[in-house]
Design a protein around this nucleic acid. Structure first.
Lengths: 162, 162
DNA sequence: ATCCGTGCAAAGTGTTTGCAGCGTT
DNA sequence: AACGCTGCAAACACTTTGCACGGAT
């Protein structure tokens, strides 16, 4: 979830700076990979999915390079690596300011994953600090449930029956 | 997190009933696996770790059987399968009443995983329903941060320096 | 000339599956 | 006899690694 006020090229510049500052280069392959992530902010792609999209723009690229790029971006806190338990890690752009306060709505019926920007955990985090002495630096909150569309389908089929 | 008022054998009986009700048997292998989970409620073992402990009590068992048992128990909602992103799924007993309101405190320094029983998400879940039409049935909340012990170490080393 | 980054293929790791055999009903 | 369950090994899916080559400084 990158600051949407910036254009894609501005955001790439920003990421380039982060790479160069740490002694890495923004190669063609890395740029294309970042671009794909930027163009699909709302999705949570697996490495394989990123690879396929990157390959469309840069056919010579190898899967290993995409893995290495995603790992690098992960280390640099540019992307977040999440595992929803379906066998493959998924990758998300982080917000530019480093904060990370989106949660996931995972539909148990259709498998869709929606991102929401609520937070509302500050009180809980303070409680954790007081009660357990644990200083929270980040969190991950996933909700399982039924999304609006699937609930709608249920209602429709109920009406059809009733 | 099974109701701790019950003894282990009572809890096994309970789980046996759940299995038998759905047409499954509580074989030796399954019982030993469940027993290991019960004896290590506070841990979050990988399949391999469960396997090694089970093997101590039942050396003939195969790894595949442990995987199949854990999957079965997962399907039956007896255990929860969690992925902390370290490459292997981990397995947790669920509470007997089916509710599941523990969160995880994952220390980024020593890797420890503590379970806490707070909830405090009801308001947030209601908000999600109103705002996104998403009906929450379950959630998962992990906090990354620094645990009490590691914070203590920091303080000590600071004192040593200062 | 050096050195980082790449593509490819091979290896690694966690997990699932096919199958023959066993035990219980 | 039927059928669920098991152990073993093979297959699988995702990810990492070794290595020689290429491109930029």
């Amino acid at each position: 979830m990158v600051n949407s006020r910036n254009s894609i090229s501005e955001q790439i510049d920003l990421i380039k700076r982060q790479l160069v500052d740490k002694g890495y280069k923004l190669t063609q392959q890395r740029e294309v990979t970042v671009r794909v992530l930027l163009e699909h902010e709302k999705d949570h792609f697996s490495a394989e999915e990123v690879f396929l999209l990157v390959k469309e723009k840069f056919p010579e690229i190898g899967l290993a390079t995409v893995y290495r790029t995603l790992e690098l971006l992960s280390d640099l806190q540019v992307v977040e690596k999440i595992n929803f338990g379906d066998g493959a890690a998924r990758f998300d752009l982080r917000s530019t300011d480093g904060s990370h306060h989106h949660h996931h709505l995972i539909c148990t019926e259709c498998g869709s994953v929606e991102e929401i920007m609520e937070d509302g955990l500050l009180r809980l985090e303070q409680q954790v600090l007081h009660q357990y002495g644990f200083a929270v630096t980040d969190h991950r909150l996933d909700f399982q449930g039924v999304c609006r569309e699937c609930r709608q389908k249920h209602k429709l089929s109920e009406q059809a029956v009733g």
